[in-house]
Design a protein around this nucleic acid. Structure first.
Lengths: 140, 140
DNA sequence: CCATCATTTCGACATATTGGAAAGTAATGG
DNA sequence: CCATTACTTTCCAATATGTCGAAATGATGG
């Protein structure tokens, strides 16, 4: 039990992984979508996802070339279930999480294939700059 | 918010600190009591306690030479409150946590002064060995 | 004051963790 | 088959973490 608790809590106790969990509250995403939002190397994201999966927080599904991850719904340990519930009630107004959701909206507007080919460039020239300037042409 | 979440979750995501939080569910304890139960160096325990306090999970009170820690009740952030509630519902049947409670019962049977002087030796010769043998003379 | 003692801080060390580049896998489409 | 492609695994560097011993701190009792 303590081992499970430690695994799950350590999985959650990282900025990038917390962001991933919050992202997936909106539904399943493939690795390249998550990678684009987080703006990290694919290897890094893959490792984070593996860790969350080992902790029982995520589940996986393959669809052709793409691998989709989602929040665990069945067969998850007691501990993981509680942590997911906790996180669901946290961070909803966090600026970084909100920014991720904003980027995710753009990501969802682009076919996965294009995203894999172009990465963040597929989101248009404003996706990156919008962090600094929101005056003219920036979203919202 | 994410910063707070990270601080609190990292504070919780350690075996020793989780044990401390479970210990304190029974009420406040002074550092030497916690040290005796965990069987770690005072410096180590002190650092863990400081980390839990910074995260807003613990509060502190001085009584003469002794410093007592307890689970935070007031002035704790949203996040810390949720984590404390989660932990309260976890690990209650964990063997290590139960063993800690068993040792704590022995610790509580000894005056704090004696505990500080003698450490684990104050618990009697069986406190340590009981982990290996419970056949003859071992508690319960 | 001064000695004592519970606790904390500092310094050091071993280990763990995060992140990325490069090589390896697995599935798709010729 | 073979090339391509999305993802994973394997290294490796940089940093963070857990633990302890030694020194510092802060309160107590002469």
């Amino acid at each position: 039990m303590l081992e499970t608790f430690e695994t799950v809590s350590k999985a959650v106790a990282d900025r990038s992984r917390a962001r991933i969990l919050k992202l997936l509250e909106g539904g399943e995403l493939c690795v390249c979508q998550i990678t684009t939002v987080l703006d990290l190397a694919p290897a890094t994201v893959s490792k984070h996802l593996a860790m969350l999966k080992v902790a029982g927080l995520l589940q996986q599904r393959r669809d052709g070339k793409w691998v989709y991850y989602r929040l665990a719904e069945r067969d998850l340990n007691h501990c993981a279930r509680k942590f997911l519930a906790l996180i669901g009630g946290c961070l909803n107004e966090d600026p970084a999480v909100e920014e991720d959701r904003r980027i995710l909206a753009m990501v969802n507007a682009v076919p996965v294939q294009v995203l894999c080919d172009q990465g963040r460039a597929a989101l248009g020239p404003n996706a990156e700059a919008s962090k600094a300037t929101t005056c003219c042409g920036g979203p919202v």
